[in-house]
């Protein structure tokens, strides 16, 4: 409130009182911490082929259930031998856990990112249609209500069973139950925004509905969508791990954290490493994404940002 009078004096205000958005984002501790963690994980995922000493699917019957830190020679597929250290030990089939966990980061991050994107894109498109065109709304939202009644994990199991255990199928299967949630969020945002005077002004200026949606409504919905996206990504990573763990996701030889844990579960009491090491990465990944979402909301959502500053 204090800024208004000062501004009216000068023909144009010199410097905005609020620091730039980027600065405010950087200043938030949970955003900074989670960004560092996620950047580190992304680097591991990107560099997986170089970080992993041996291919993640490679089985060597000579090295079954090795303890972490054990060093030995591994026979590669072409018969040649490589001397390596099993930093996290090996599993019951003689696969190097470190190589598998590092490769697993790729799948988890890809699943998280793709599911968030797919759910946001489709959810936003449907939500904007439902929110802006009232005739579409009634029909579309009943379909969405129906979709919401389907338990997510059951749908995923059914889809994977029907279409085969492929990464694309898993991503689609996890994304579908998220779409209705995004649709509802976007629809409610559009319903509020379409009553805003600047949207009415655009209508009076003969702006077409599509332009209104893309130019006036979408840019003003980005913040809540970004925040929702982080929570979808976190949930998707967990769901993918759960599917794999239950043996309903990607085939067991594919190195995902869920698969590694599922394989390790059998011998957990003697060799807990196969469960604990992937968990030690899964946990901070999901935590970092959730903290990122919380931080974004605190900084970008005016309801939280202005608290205490008036």
């Amino acid at each position: 409130m204090s800024t208004v009078a000062g501004r009216q004096e000068s023909p144009m205000p010199g410097t905005p009182v609020k620091p730039s958005t980027f600065k405010r984002l950087r200043r938030n501790r949970s955003i900074l911490a989670s960004a560092i963690v996620l950047a580190f994980l992304a680097m591991i995922a990107a560099a997986a082929p170089w970080l992993a000493p041996v291919p993640p699917e490679l089985m060597d019957s000579a090295h079954i259930h090795r303890a972490a830190g054990h060093a030995g020679a591994v026979t590669l597929a072409d018969g040649s031998q490589v001397h390596t250290t099993f930093w996290m030990g090996t599993d019951g089939l003689g696969r190097d856990l470190f190589s598998r966990v590092v490769h697993g980061a790729r799948i988890s991050l890809v699943v998280g990112l793709c599911c968030a994107l797919v759910a946001l894109v489709f959810g936003t498109a449907l939500g904007m249609l439902a929110g802006y065109f009232r005739s579409v709304d009634v029909v579309l939202m009943r379909v969405i209500d129906g979709l919401m009644a389907i338990p997510g994990i059951l749908l995923a199991i059914a889809l994977v069973a029907a279409l085969g255990p492929k990464l694309v199928v898993v991503i689609v299967a996890i994304s579908i139950p998220e779409v209705p949630r995004v649709t509802r969020l976007v629809r409610s945002l559009v319903l509020t925004l379409r009553e805003e005077p600047f949207v009415e002004a655009a209508r009076a200026l003969a702006t077409s509905p599509l332009t209104i949606l893309m130019r006036h409504i979408l840019p003003n919905s980005i913040t809540p969508l970004l925040i929702q996206g982080t929570f979808i990504a976190a949930a998707a990573i967990i769901t993918e791990a759960a599917l794999s763990f239950l043996g309903l996701g990607l085939p067991p030889e594919v190195p995902t954290w869920g698969n590694v844990m599922a394989e390790g579960r059998v011998a957990f009491s003697e060799y807990p490493g196969a469960v604990l090491f992937p968990a030690m990465l899964l946990f901070p990944t999901v935590l970092a994404i959730n903290l990122l979402g919380d931080g974004l909301r605190d900084v970008l959502d005016p309801k939280f940002a202005r608290r205490g500053m008036q």
Binding site: P197, F198, E200, A201, A204, L205, A206
Partner: peptide, 17 residues
């Protein structure tokens, strides 16, 4: 549409931020 234009009450909400 160009014939009739409108100016609204709330200056904070009448421009796309």
């Amino acid at each position: 549409r160009n014939a009739v234009q409108i100016v609204f009450q709330d200056p904070n909400r009448s421009l796309n931020p």
